[in-house]
Design a protein around this nucleic acid. Sequence first.
DNA 1: GCAAAGGGTTGCGTTATGAAACTCAGTGGG
DNA 2: CCCACTGAGTTTCATAACGCAACCCTTTGC
Lengths: 156, 156
Amino acid sequence: MNQIDQLKAVFTECGISAALEVVGERWSFLILRGAFNGLHHFEEFQSTLGIARNILSNRLTRLVEHGILRRDPDPDDRRKVAYRLTEKGRDLLPVLLSLRQWGERWVSGLPSNPVLVDRLGRRPIMVTVHAEDGRPLSLGDMEWVDRADLGKDAAA
Amino acid sequence: MNQIDQLKAVFTECGISAALEVVGERWSFLILRGAFNGLHHFEEFQSTLGIARNILSNRLTRLVEHGILRRDPDPDDRRKVAYRLTEKGRDLLPVLLSLRQWGERWVSGLPSNPVLVDRLGRRPIMVTVHAEDGRPLSLGDMEWVDRADLGKDAAA
DNA sequence: GCAAAGGGTTGCGTTATGAAACTCAGTGGG
DNA sequence: CCCACTGAGTTTCATAACGCAACCCTTTGC
């Protein structure tokens, strides 16, 4: 098995590397953040993010190819194209939110604006790591287990 | 201030871009994944990830500079250096896990190995987005609110 | 018909990434 | 003490990704 095959194996066997292959390039996350914030059009992304037009074009195309965004031409104005999150894209919300939570806590220091709130309680939503029964967990409460031993352990 | 200008302001100070400055480069997440999986040494990262040595060197240095990893020379063998997650680094777990969850579901299709389980229940842990009271939320249950309006709304 | 808007491309220079070879202190065995 | 080997990097040079500015082509509004 050569170097390339090894790399390829790494890329396909782990969910993290699989995900990064699709959304790991520079700007991808920021474009998605924009999409979650209600941006739809090329010019909106370009002017709010300040990204180079060729790169933006490239990323949007890639995100569409990977089924994360949909490209909807506007029937009323045929110059316009709306990029919208698919379900696959919307399902990246936990990634974006946890990244934001971390960035606010450890890098920028200050909570950013606007805040995503629960429509009912009108309190900020949160991302947590927890057990199936809902108990919140920290790293010390977890351990790595070979998948093959999972059922076995649970049964034991 | 129109919507776009608002977003533009938001974006420069957003936790997501802050986070990406630090961990957004290629390989950073994979190195962190390795660290969470118990890798500590340069050679371990290099051989398991297949990353170029110069890049690995560069990333490790950056992650140390940003306080995500600690660089501990081994007192018993002065050739060895152990890279360990700091609290700031460990706090990236939700990001890594949600990324992995997404990658497994939407890209690789299959669950990867090993699995992080709850030490007590010995069941896989999970990452979710939810309200303060624990209710799981989907995008439709949330809305963006200006932080200044938060208390106001809650009081109203 | 003409200017402007929207969504891109093209060309070209700069940075980032990658492969392979090289360094160099430290260690372990004979 | 000598030599092979290990661990953790550096250096060199080629290639890919990124960024800027300018350009292009439809579609619209007037």
